[in-house]
């Protein structure tokens, strides 16, 4: 696979007020097709980072390159068009009175032929498992379903980079898992899509290739999910708990039994019957 650099962030620093820094010297790179989770508590600086990446906040300190280009006034619009964002509140993102119209909203601005638009809407709905809900009204959907519709609306625009800004934090555990499953499926069918998810949910981080933990605006940890969640003491210091499968895994390890923790619970447990 092509490992083109999608995001290069170097020493990103931002303060909302003089003398206060919400984000301090955060650096990372994201290659094409990778899934990065940025994990942190409320107030860790993760939303500030999300806003800088999506152009909602200006760059104050540090360097940022998106798709190999430094964002400027001239190329800003064309770079932004390649980025899809899903926000936190499912109810604030519904713009139409049916699922089909909602997914079509972005496409309508592209002056596509009707047949092509219908086809793209159906494809996008299918990607997130919502193809049977196209005629439904938003008030008949659960939170997880609404967020999958928001995701479909963004996917219909065929972005190269998808940014999820706390997209699951208002969902119940079932809704969260629906969205994770949709993302896992998406990564299978669209291996070139790159993802950054900003979250406080350790369970979501299990699905990523790489996890960065932010604390007080600083990068506190950086590694694969396995590297991060094996460091129990360090996590505790950052007021984070390992995901359930890691907690179960360490309880089993004490008794000499090994499992392989990952995003899918059944697969994680499978060594117990094989």
């Amino acid at each position: 696979m092509d490992h083109r650099l999608i995001v290069r962030a170097k020493d990103l620093t931002f303060g909302y007020r003089k003398g206060e820094k919400a984000l301090r010297n955060v650096s990372f790179e994201l290659n094409q097709g990778r899934y990065l989770v940025i994990l942190g508590h409320n107030g860790s600086g993760k939303s500030t980072l999300a806003r800088i990446l999506t152009g909602l906040l200006p760059l104050q300190g540090g360097e940022l390159e998106l798709f190999g280009e430094v964002p400027t006034k001239e190329n800003g619009a064309s770079l932004t068009r390649r980025i899809g964002i899903v926000f936190q509140n499912p109810d604030n993102q519904f713009v139409a009175s049916s699922v089909e119209e909602d997914i079509a909203f972005g496409l309508e601005n592209l002056a596509l032929p009707r047949e092509e638009m219908v086809r793209k809407v159906r494809e996008a709905a299918k990607m997130v498992g919502m193809e049977e809900f196209l005629n439904k009204a938003p008030e008949n959907l659960s939170g997880g379903q609404k967020q999958r519709v928001a995701l479909a609306g963004v996917l219909a625009m065929e972005p190269d980079l998808l940014i999820l800004d706390e997209a699951t934090s208002m969902l119940d555990p079932k809704g969260k898992r629906e969205v994770y499953k949709a993302i896992d499926g998406l990564r299978q069918t669209h291996p070139s899509l790159s993802l950054i998810s900003i979250t406080h949910d350790v369970e979501e981080a299990l699905h990523a290739d790489r996890v960065i933990v932010l604390s007080d605006g600083l990068k506190a940890m950086d590694g694969t999910p396995d590297e991060i969640f094996s460091k129990k003491e360090e996590l505790k210091r950052l007021r984070l708990y390992p995901p359930f499968v890691y907690r179960l895994s360490s309880a089993l390890k004490k008794l000499g039994i090994d499992i392989v923790p990952e995003g899918d619970l059944e697969r994680s447990l499978s060594p117990l019957w094989r």
């Binding site: 179960l248 309880a251 089993l252 004490k254 008794l255 039994i257 117990l272 019957w273």
Partner: peptide, 23 residues
Amino acid sequence: ILNAHGYSLSYQYENLDDLAKAI
């Protein structure tokens, strides 16, 4: 999941250490 794969665990374990022992 474990019971579907041949275990016969009861539903009384809330503590992971106890569950691990039963497993």
